[in-house]
Write a protein that binds this DNA or RNA. Sequence first.
DNA 1: GTCTATATGTGGATAGAC
DNA 2: GTCTATCCACATATAGAC
Lengths: 204, 204
Amino acid sequence: MVHKQAPPVRKLDDQGKILSNAARLFREKGFEKTSLKEIAEACNMLPGSLYYRYSTKETLLVELMRRGVGLVTAEVEMAYADSDDPVQQLRFCINAHLRALLVDPDTVYALLFEWRSLGPEAREEIVALRDQYESLWAEILAVMIEKGVIKKNVDSRLLRLIGFGALNWVATWFDPNGDHSLEAIGDFVWQIAIGGVITKGVQS
Amino acid sequence: MVHKQAPPVRKLDDQGKILSNAARLFREKGFEKTSLKEIAEACNMLPGSLYYRYSTKETLLVELMRRGVGLVTAEVEMAYADSDDPVQQLRFCINAHLRALLVDPDTVYALLFEWRSLGPEAREEIVALRDQYESLWAEILAVMIEKGVIKKNVDSRLLRLIGFGALNWVATWFDPNGDHSLEAIGDFVWQIAIGGVITKGVQS
DNA sequence: GTCTATATGTGGATAGAC
DNA sequence: GTCTATCCACATATAGAC
């Protein structure tokens, strides 16, 4: 077997550069207001060159979103497998979802807020992927309720939706240089999950 | 003093029709993908006619957002004044914020998700209004902590941001004909605030 | 106040040289 | 694989009649 001449020197640079620049611009200006010319300029290329990789602007967004879902899914699945104690598992999964917002914030931002720019077919694909991720959480929460980690009388769908809100919204205000670290945010959410915020005794 | 000849027969119909149609379309398709032609058609008008009321497309969005902030602010202020018991006040304010998402969902949706379509000057204005609303909540939460309703050790800024997330995200999935009524959602959030979701005894 | 007609700009996308 | 050049559609906005 012949030795490969050149070591696999990451070929992602081309595609990766386009995707990351696009993601950044989409986050800053929104998908619709970002022109292919701008994306190309950010990559030191010309508009026409982008079409060699992505036949339409929408394709670019779809690819971005696919990666976004893959990212959060991988983080949460790893976190779940990272402990045998269900309480720890839940806590780790919350932190994993939050971490995914940081690992590649621009990509996840597109996933959360640019789905209206997808045509019907593309939207169907992405929604299916998103539903898959949500069903992963549905399973996790079901297990937690079954194991008695989460109170039996809690509506798991509402918990998932409200919890997603609390976590996803972080993407709109989180500042890596700001007052609150991701860990602090995760701890805070966990404290609420454990005991709420209302003082005992004044509860009506 | 001369009697006014015609009674004030709601003159909002014209402007109101434009705004509500625009809000609905902005929510469905997004601001950038909605053309003035579509808005005009929805109002049984022609594109040129819209410019009599709004000199630019952005002006329309700004006016919409002004109303959105006014709406939620009014709801929460009324709710706060609706009781003397601080616990009830907090609960009412949460419900009021949620209710504002329903009263005029399209308008509030624009406020939450279309701010990137504003130019620098307009954005400054709307952000200032939004900050005003947030400071209203900051005050409410500060009072609640001071009065011992909310636990003393809770970071009020984090609570506000996480809470806004939980509530605002409802706008992305709420279905008036769906399983959960706004009241049920408010109760659910309140239950979490009171005691969290984790079973006592398994808390690590 | 609403219409017609149109100016003007821009963006996505294609064809084909290199 | 990237470039040049360009087509084409469409959107915002304007001017001016009615």
